[in-house]
């Protein structure tokens, strides 16, 4: 029992918590090797086999999902197609520059589909746009925290004004060294007095 009590007391130290958490999580993950895993092939938003589009020589491989710009929608297998009226239009859209790039070379698929339009944008902005709102909010919050800390604490803003930093530093150093010297002297004197008292007693 006392051992358990000691163990429990250790849990009350914040420093141990991440380690404990990591340990438990790691052990649980190892249990993942014991269970049968397999990919359910009936997924939403499936993509073609890797490199198949590249081998077929499609201009916007690997993100070609069909459709023509502003004419016909591309193929997007959403979970609830009835909730997204314009499903597939974003998928097939390309900016004029991207459209121009498309004709130049078949090896620019990634950048073409990353500029507004493309299946990833369809998912990120339209069908699962709410997720992206959250993600960007997380990003914003994290940076607000970081920048607040930085501005108010970890970053030094005082120094930026003065250009003659070195001179000031030297002055300050001299002043403080004077002070320290006097302090040292004071403490020396005290120590000597103490010594003297002891000896005279």
């Amino acid at each position: 029992m006392p051992k358990i009590a000691k163990l429990w007391n250790k849990l009350a130290d914040p420093k141990n918590i991440p380690r404990l958490f990591a340990l438990i999580l790691g052990l649980l993950l190892i249990a993942g090797f014991l269970i049968p895993v397999g990919l359910n092939t009936d997924q939403i938003y499936t993509r073609p086999a890797p490199q198949s589009q590249m081998d077929a020589g499609l201009a916007i491989a690997p993100y070609d999902r069909g459709g023509e710009i502003l004419e016909s929608p591309g193929i997007t297998e959403a979970q609830y197609p009835e909730n997204s009226q314009n499903l597939g239009w974003i998928n097939s859209y390309m900016t004029p520059i991207a459209d121009m790039l498309k004709g130049i070379s078949p090896y620019f698929g990634t950048s073409i589909c990353a500029s507004p339009g493309g299946v990833i944008d369809e998912i990120l902005y339209y069908t699962r746009g709410f997720d992206t709102i959250l993600e960007s909010s997380i990003l914003m919050m994290a940076f607000i925290i970081a920048s607040w800390l930085a501005i108010n604490f970890t970053m030094d803003r005082k120094e930026e004004k003065g250009k003659g930093d070195i001179e000031e530093d030297v002055k300050r150093a001299i002043a403080s060294s004077d002070r320290i010297a006097s302090e040292v002297e004071m403490s020396n004197r005290k120590a000597r007095e103490k010594q003297a008292k002891k000896e005279f007693r």
Partner: peptide, 11 residues
């Protein structure tokens, strides 16, 4: 262009 099921490679 877009397969019905996940390609065999992924699964």
């Amino acid at each position: 262009i877009v397969p019905q099921f996940v390609p065999a490679f992924y699964s």
